[in-house]
């Protein structure tokens, strides 16, 4: 893993070679942090850091920066997700300074779902910079102590551990690994993947990642999502962009007497397998609307409590 050391605990664990676990908290569509704090308390002893999504699927939610601070107060290390959909380079840099001042040390740089998917489809988008340019900007602020414009940050530059995402299930497949390389060249130090259901395709992608030595330059955290029901699986298959959910997984859920238990079982099997894949440095578990199941899955997968 390249790049200088930051105060991120996640970075420290990855540098020590620990197999890390991250999870996800989606902030609510209201102004109370109660749910965030409850989920943080639930995940605290089980994960090394928690992603805080940034108005995911372009639906207005409590800000990821504020939610990240609530997590910090609960003793959970946040990974601040930052999309380039809603903020220009001025607002992004301002929020990076603010986030760092509040104790946030990890940032995950993304494009963001298009606003047409959300609850304000008539909104104007920003996309002043793209996700790769955001990675480069966070790195420039840290390593060159400069704002994007080149102006010097005279003191107290924000020193983030920089993350990015990769989707092995999007197209063109052959370019996915090259684009990952671009992200790493821009400064990404850890990578969280899109939810993996098609293990065969993930294996092919990882082989290409290893071939280019990218797993040695950035920590790859494999993304998993437990499927709560046949309906949820179908939704993921049909409505979520850039996702592949194989039919046989859906058939397996259908056949099961208890679909929820089967969903847990599938996720545990996936984690156990992914742990054995060379170059996978950790698991990122995205239990959307089913956060409470995370400890059960991790325990069954043999990823013991952090306490």
């Amino acid at each position: 893993m390249s790049g200088p050391t930051t105060e991120s605990k996640l970075e420290k664990l990855l540098r020590e070679g620990k197999f890390v676990v991250t999870a996800e908290i989606g902030p609510p569509k209201h102004a109370s942090a109660e749910g965030i704090r409850r989920h943080a308390a639930l995940l605290k002893d089980w994960v090394d850091a928690v992603n805080i999504t940034d108005n995911q699927t372009a639906i207005v939610r409590l800000s990821s920066l504020a939610a990240g601070v609530h997590c910090l107060q609960m003793g959970v290390e946040p990974i601040l997700q930052m999309t380039v959909r809603d903020r220009n380079r001025i607002a992004l840099q301002s929020d990076l300074l603010g986030a760092y001042s509040l104790g946030i040390r990890n940032v995950l740089c993304l494009s963001g779902d298009h606003q047409s998917f959300g609850n304000h489809p008539t909104a104007r988008n920003v996309f002043d910079i793209d996700s790769i340019q955001l990675i480069a900007m966070v790195k420039k602020m840290r390593d060159e102590k400069q704002f994007l414009c080149g102006e010097e940050i005279k003191e107290h530059e924000p020193r983030f551990f920089i993350g990015a995402v990769a989707n092995p299930f999007a197209d063109p497949f052959e370019f996915r690994v090259l684009r990952l390389e671009k992200k790493i060249n821009a400064g990404a130090q850890f990578i969280q993947t899109q939810c993996i259901f098609d293990l065969e395709r993930f294996d092919r992608w990882m082989a290409m990642v290893r071939e280019r030595g990218l797993h040695k330059r950035a920590a790859i955290l494999a993304g998993v999502t437990p499927l709560k029901s046949v309906g949820a699986a179908r939704y993921m298959q049909q409505a979520v962009s850039g996702m592949i959910v194989p039919d046989d997984l859906i058939a397996r859920l259908k056949k099961a007497a208890d679909a929820k238990a089967e969903g847990v079982e599938i996720c545990v099997e996936q984690i156990k397998y992914l742990r054995t894949v060379e170059g996978v440095a950790g698991i990122h578990i995205m239990a959307v609307m089913w956060e409470e199941i995370v400890p059960t899955i991790l325990e069954k997968a043999g990823l013991r409590s952090r306490t």
């Binding site: 959909r85 494009s111 963001g112 779902d113 298009h114 047409s116 998917f117 988008n125 996309f127 793209d130 996700s131 790769i132 340019q133 995402v165 990769a166 989707n167 299930f169 999007a170 197209d171 063109p172 370019f175 684009r179 671009k182 899109q194 962009s241 850039g242």
Partner: peptide
């Protein structure tokens, strides 16, 4: 590109189409 990405394609590109509308070709494809 619906997101004007200069270093694309984003993670929503599938089967050559844009995540915003399956009738639109992904520019980065």
């Amino acid at each position: 590109c619906a997101k004007s990405i200069l270093n694309g394609p984003c993670g929503g590109s599938q089967n050559g189409k844009c995540e915003v509308n399956k009738e639109i070709d992904c520019a980065w494809q």
